[in-house]
Design a binder for these strands. Structure first.
Lengths: 339, 339
DNA sequence: TTTTTTTGTGCAAACGAATGCACATCTTTT
DNA sequence: AAAAGATGTGCATTCGTTTGCACAAAAAAA
């Protein structure tokens, strides 16, 4: 009863709904006179087109679904901000889903988004996902899908990823150039491409610099709890250890605490490097050297790509992959380069 | 062309769309036989009701709009996670908007959400908002509105807030009990109720404990840049200063850095307390005493309240206010209580 | 003046689902 | 056997738009 419709305007001005509809969209067949009349009436009576009806009729809509595995998370919230900005500037809305690293919730999120008839989906996979039927269903429903960061290798679709390999390679090589010789890698499950690529970057940097690759120094350690268990063991078992390259900033920060409380100095005795460049890197003591992932840009690029697909501006058949460059950000937890 | 409709089912089974519609919703007037027939056909052909059409016809929908001022932000992302969980469990979707502390974007967000015909809106105000017409418009459109955390005092509607006053009071009193005598407050603009309430809690705790309230120790200092400028000045001008109570954890963390580099020990010489209990409180050195705001619970409570309004389960006329309790979390940046 | 073209409107049928009402058919009651 | 009730379906309309097509009225050309 509150919202006024095209019909109401038509009745009030003694016109037909079709004329009003056309007048509102500046259809050339409508006289300037009626057009002005209609638009003025619409303006003063605060007419708002009913998006639902419009979408139903035209069978196209401007809502994009987003699935993130975690939201209380510097990187993903940054990506979301980027997605939001790009989407908003192109007139798209965002339907937000949160899988919370849970496969079942991820599947439900997909259902929700398909039910809501979104025109495209941006997704980053949860850690626990090992089946991909739900993602395939998106494609089977002719809904565009772009993966970002945690891509799903089982599905052939567009993706935007960070250059994890290069990020890891550069970080590790930098530590080597500062004199580190035995560098541990605190990684994540190798089934995740991002983790695997970083491990490969780490190993290649060692090899390239003629350092041994010791499998014992490469661990799955992607949570605070695991860090508390693993880092002390590593320190004890290997007295020559002089650096940690970590899968994310949190693990790196906790690693630093443990290393410090074990009596080592950072970076003089042991160097530590994180991944992401979240704000915690500024408040640790010393500040934490890290690899910036440019999450905001990733979000924008992913949204851009999806929208281009939706609007038919990106016509390349097959898979489009975008690579976001990483950047080593030197702070206080690594040493100066040895001349 | 991919999605099958009620009509399609009707045609295939030689029934009318109305019968199919009723069969799908287990309408009692439909025979068990037809019902089974229809539901089986729907199942095997992956029928998905068109939400748009349904919403258009019934004039009710299950999408809630959310406006947050910042998303790369521990507290707000936590609240969002809470909102998401509650909404999802009740079958509601979330349309996500991000004002980025910008009034104009906030206004646009409201427009977007009203255009999308959401059934309710959860909002937290941006720092730069001083006019409230856009919020009033939500109410004028008969859309339910619940504010959380950064409420808008100019609008009469339901709200969920943290008990900022008690949080501040308890934190400051605790520092007094540990022997602190001159406590500075690094606050935010007093036009924000949350900032003002914390200041009042701070001042009352001083008064109650017979300590002087020195306006000079109470500053607007809610960003890192301001902290860099203000904290050193305070330290220089007041050699008796022995504590900082800060508006958020970031400011507190930077404050600690400055205090430490000025040669003071924390907490022996100077105590520091933050607000939020974000993960940075665990990685500073020492760890940071803080006031937990229970963001996740706030999100759940706010969503719950909004949904109750939408579904008519909360019938109280006038404004419903929910208060989320805060909790002092003692870590390493404050001393033990003096016996 | 008649025919043709232009110009502006309106009609009606979609889009996919929900629903009040009418109507057959079958069962039960009188 | 006739009337009344119960049971299951279908018709038609509605939600608010969009859009192909027809069609008046006015302007231009013949």
């Amino acid at each position: 009863m509150s919202q006024i419709t095209l019909k109401d305007i038509a009745k009030a001005l003694n016109l037909s709904p079709s004329t009003v509809s056309r007048a509102m969209k500046n259809h050339p067949a409508i006289s300037a006179e009626t057009r002005a009349l209609v638009q003025e009436y619409a303006e003063t009576h605060k007419y708002k087109p009913n998006t639902l009806a419009m979408q139903l009729r035209t069978n196209r809509n401007t809502t994009i679904g987003v699935i993130v595995p975690e939201i209380v998370h510097y990187f993903f919230s940054t990506v979301l901000a980027g997605i939001q900005q790009e989407a908003e500037s192109e007139g798209y809305n965002l339907l937000f889903c949160h899988s919370n690293e849970d496969y079942a919730r991820e599947v439900r999120s997909v259902e929700t988004l398909l039910d809501a008839r979104v025109c495209g989906i941006l997704a980053s996979q949860s850690k626990t996902t090992e089946k991909f039927d739900h993602f395939q269903e998106i494609i089977d429903n002719d809904v565009h899908l772009v993966f970002f960061d945690r891509i799903c290798t089982g599905i052939n679709t567009d993706k935007v990823v960070v250059d994890d390999y290069a990020g890891a390679y550069n970080a590790v090589e930098h530590m080597i150039h500062t004199g580190c010789q035995r560098i541990a890698f605190l990684g994540s499950t190798p089934s995740m491409p991002i983790a695997n690529n970083r491990r490969m970057g780490y190993e290649d940097a060692l090899r390239k610099n003629k350092l041994p690759v010791d499998k014992n120094l490469s661990r799955i350690c992607d949570t605070v709890d695991l860090a508390r268990e693993i880092v002390p063991k590593l320190l004890k078992s290997d007295s020559l250890l002089d650096a940690f390259f970590c899968i994310n900033d949190e693990v790196a920060a906790y690693c630093m605490q443990i290393v410090k409380s074990a009596g080592y100095r950072i970076p003089e005795d042991i160097s530590v490097c994180g991944f992401t460049n979240s704000y915690i890197t500024e408040v640790t003591d010393p500040t934490l050297t890290t690899v910036d992932q440019h999450g905001f840009e990733m979000g924008k690029v992913a949204a851009r790509l999806l929208i281009n697909r939706i609007e038919g501006k990106e016509t390349k058949p097959g898979v489009v992959s975008r690579l976001i460059k990483t950047e080593l950000v030197l702070k206080g937890s690594t040493r100066e380069v040895v001349q």
